[in-house]
């Protein structure tokens, strides 16, 4: 009874690119490459052994690559004759064309900066991206558009799913306890909007802290802990609910 277990790393181990993670029949999730039955890490990651035959590699750093349909939060950095150039925290600069701003055709506005100027923040959706062209955005749909209030938090794009949590747990929790709405951009930008700027700040702080570590086993529990610490240190115990 001699076949060694396929997973060659221990739970929580940091693996470097090219390091052997598993050999044989098993599931390797996260960025990796294989050579025959050998599976190697592709980027610097932490290995989480989820089952005896399943290991997940969580990258410590990962750039955001746009995917069609993603909601992103972008910043206008340049204006062209018929489009704006939007920084979406990605190696790929995005374009928002003037035809993707208004739901219905409107009279021609010659000066684009009157609609959106450099420095404005928008919630947008990725219309299309293939590596041959710049990603194209739209803000035509509802819930998209220019952002006029709230706090913007930047987190590593690979940790966005942590904020969303399982079925929106973390987002819902923060909304209930701090009375804030979150717009989570897939590109690692989170917009926090609330009536109370103190609570906004707490939410922003919690999100930032929650996403510092590469791996957090129970995001909801950690979020609760962080909120309690933050509220008690501000002398405001309990919040709402």
């Amino acid at each position: 009874m001699g076949t060694p277990m396929p997973i060659r790393v221990s739970n929580g181990q940091i693996v470097v690119p090219g390091e052997l993670v598993a050999e044989g029949r098993c599931e390797v999730l996260g960025p990796h490459f294989s050579s025959g039955r050998r599976h190697y890490a592709k980027v610097l990651s932490v290995a989480v052994v989820e089952k005896p035959r399943r290991v997940r590699l969580i990258p410590l750093k990962r750039s955001y690559v746009p995917v069609e349909g993603d909601i992103v939060i972008g910043k206008v950095v340049d204006i062209g004759p018929t489009s704006w150039v939007i920084d979406i925290n990605s190696p790929y600069m995005a374009l928002l064309q003037v035809s993707e701003v208004f739901p219905r055709p409107t009279t021609l506005q010659r000066d684009l900066s009157k609609i959106l100027k450099v420095g404005d923040v928008v919630i947008a959706k990725v219309l299309s991206f293939d590596f041959a062209h710049d990603p194209l955005l739209t803000i035509k749909e509802s819930k998209l558009g220019k952002v006029s209030k709230g706090l913007l938090v930047e987190i590593p794009p690979s940790r966005v799913s942590r904020i969303i949590g399982r079925k929106g747990q973390v987002v819902n929790y923060l909304r209930d306890v701090l009375d804030v709405e979150l717009v989570v951009g897939r590109n690692g930008r989170v917009l926090v909007v609330g009536e109370d700027s103190e609570r906004e700040a707490v939410a922003a702080y919690v999100i930032k802290r929650l996403c510092e570590e590469a791996y957090v086993p129970d995001p909801l529990a950690t979020a609760k802990q962080l909120v309690e610490e933050a509220l008690s240190s501000r002398g405001d115990v309990g919040g709402r609910g």
Binding site: N11, G12, Q13, I14, V46, V48, V49, E50, K51, P52, E213, A214, Y215, V216, P217, D218
Partner: peptide, 12 residues
């Protein structure tokens, strides 16, 4: 540092 955090939790 992650090592300590993960080992302190039960994933498996």
């Amino acid at each position: 540092r992650i090592l300590e955090e993960v080992e302190g939790s039960e994933v498996m």
